Computed example of a mutant assay.
Amino acid sequence: MTSPSIYVVAFFVSLLVSVGSMPFVIKFAKRYGFVDQINHRKIHKKEMPRLGGVSIILGAIAGLIVIRPESDYLFGIGLGALIIIITGLIDDRYVLDAKAKFSAQIAAALVVVGSGITIPFITLPLSGQFEFGIFTYLITVLWIVGITNSINLIDGLDGLAGGVVTIALSTILMMAIIDSFSQHLMIITLSVVLIGSTLGFLLFNFYPAKIFMGDTGSLFLGYSIAVISILGLFKSVTMFSLIVPVIILAVPISDTVFAMIRRVLNKKKITSPDKEHIHHCLLAMGYSHRTTVMIVYGLSLFFSGLAMIFTNVTIWTALIIIGLMLITIQLYAEFIGLFGKSRRPVIDAVKRLGMMDKK
C-alpha cells in the first residue's frame, strides 16, 4: 500500500509546479494570442490571458509522477483528458463552435466508457437500486459531457470555477478517505493532485485575476471531476450512489439545467450565451465581485455538507435532506426569474433593507 505521506508530497509538488509555471504561461498566452477579448458579456474591462488551465494540467501531471498510480482505467482517463485538453487549447486560441466542442467531449466520454468506467445504476431511498441496463453507456456519456459543460458555464468570475471545483474535489477526497483509504487510491490520487494544482492557479485567478483558466482549464476540470465522481467511490455506499455526486455538484448542475430551460423558454439555442447565470444575478443585485464569488462558495459548501451527511443517515433523514436541497434550488430558480417572474422586487427589497454590498 502506498504511504499516505506520498500524497502530501504530491499535493505540494502539484501546487508548486502550478504556481511556478504560471508566469511563463501568462507570457506565452499574451505573446501567441491566447487572450480573452472584451465584449458585452464579459465582466473584465481589459484583454486577459486565458491559458491558466495549462498550469493546472502541468501541476496535476507533476503530482501524478510523484505518486505513480496503477490503475486499469488510467490510460482511458488520460486519453480522454488529452482530447479535452487539445479541444480547450484550440478554443482558447481560435474559438470553436458549439458543435465541435460537443463532439470532442462526446469522443472523450466514449473513450472513458470504453475503458470500463460506467454508471450502471442509481440507488434511491424507498425504491431501492435502479439498474440502467442498456442505457448505462448513454447515461455515463451524458454525465461526463454534462458535468464538463457545467463547470465551463460557471467559469464567469475570477476564482469562481476554480473554487467550486476545489470544494467539490475536497468533499470527494474526504469521503473517499473516510470510507476506505486503501480501496479508493485512484480517486484520492486524482483529487489530491487536482486540488493542489487548482489552488496554485487560484493564487493568480482570485479577484483581481492575472489570468483566466480558459476552456483548457474549465473543460479539463469539468471532465476530471465527472470521471472521479463515477470511479466507484459511491458504489460501495449501500443506500446511495449517483445521488451523492449530484448533491456535491448541485450548484453547477442546477445553473446549467436552468440555463438550458431559460434558453428554451426564450426560444433561443441552448448553446447561446447569456448573462443570467447565478453570478450575473448576484452582480445585478449590487454585490461586489468578491462577495458574489463568496456567496457561490457558500452554496457549494452547503451542498457538500449535505452530501457528507447524506451518506450516514436513515432513509427518512435522507429524504428530508433531498427536500431541503430541492427547496434551495427552487428558491434559486425564483431568484433568477426563471419562469418569467421579475427579480426586481427582490433587488428593491434588498436595497431598502440596506443589505447591498457597496464595495
Score class of each variant (00 low, 15 high):
Met1Thr: 02
Ser5Cys: 00
Tyr7Ser: 07
Tyr7Pro: 01
Ala10His: 02
Phe12Val: 04
Val13Lys: 03
Pro23Gly: 09
Phe34Asn: 10
Val35Arg: 08
Asp36Thr: 11
Ile43Ser: 14
Lys45Arg: 03
Leu51Pro: 13
Leu51Trp: 07
Leu64Met: 14
Val66Tyr: 14
Arg68Ala: 14
Arg68Ile: 14
Thr87Val: 09
Asp91Lys: 05
Asp92Gln: 10
Leu96Val: 04
Ser103Cys: 02
Ala107Trp: 03
Ala108Gln: 09
Ala109Cys: 00
Val112Tyr: 04
Gly116Asn: 05
Ile119Ser: 11
Pro120Ser: 15
Ile122Ser: 09
Ser127Pro: 00
Phe130Asp: 09
Glu131Asp: 15
Gly133Met: 06
Gly133Pro: 07
Phe135Asp: 06
Phe135Thr: 15
Tyr137Arg: 13
Thr140Arg: 03
Thr148Ala: 13
Gly156Lys: 11
Ala161Met: 09
Gly162Arg: 14
Ile172Trp: 01
Leu173Glu: 07
Ile178Ser: 00
Phe181Thr: 04
Ser182Pro: 04
His184Asp: 08
Met186Trp: 01
Ile195Gln: 04
Gly196Pro: 12
Ser197Ile: 11
Thr198Ser: 10
Thr198Asp: 06
Pro208Tyr: 08
Ala209Leu: 11
Lys210Ser: 01
Gly217Leu: 04
Gly217Ser: 11
Leu219Asn: 10
Phe220Ser: 11
Tyr223Asn: 00
Ile228Met: 12
Ile230Val: 14
Phe234Thr: 08
Lys235Gln: 06
Val237Met: 03
Thr238Glu: 15
Phe240Asp: 08
Ser241Tyr: 02
Ile248Ala: 05
Ala250Ser: 15
Arg262His: 12
Ile270Ser: 03
Pro273Lys: 11
Glu276Cys: 00
His279Pro: 03
Leu283Phe: 08
Gly286Met: 01
Arg290Gln: 15
Ile295Pro: 03
Leu299Ala: 01
Phe302Thr: 10
Phe303Lys: 03
Thr314Asn: 03
Ile315Val: 12
Trp316Ala: 06
Thr317Val: 12
Ile321Glu: 00
Leu324Asp: 05
Leu326Asn: 14
Ile327Asp: 00
Gln330His: 02
Lys341Val: 05
Ser342Arg: 12
Arg343Leu: 02
Pro345Thr: 10
Val346Gly: 06
Asp348Tyr: 07
Ala349Gln: 15
Ala349Arg: 14
Leu353Lys: 04
Met356Lys: 13
Lys359Val: 07
Lys359Gln: 09
Lys359Leu: 06
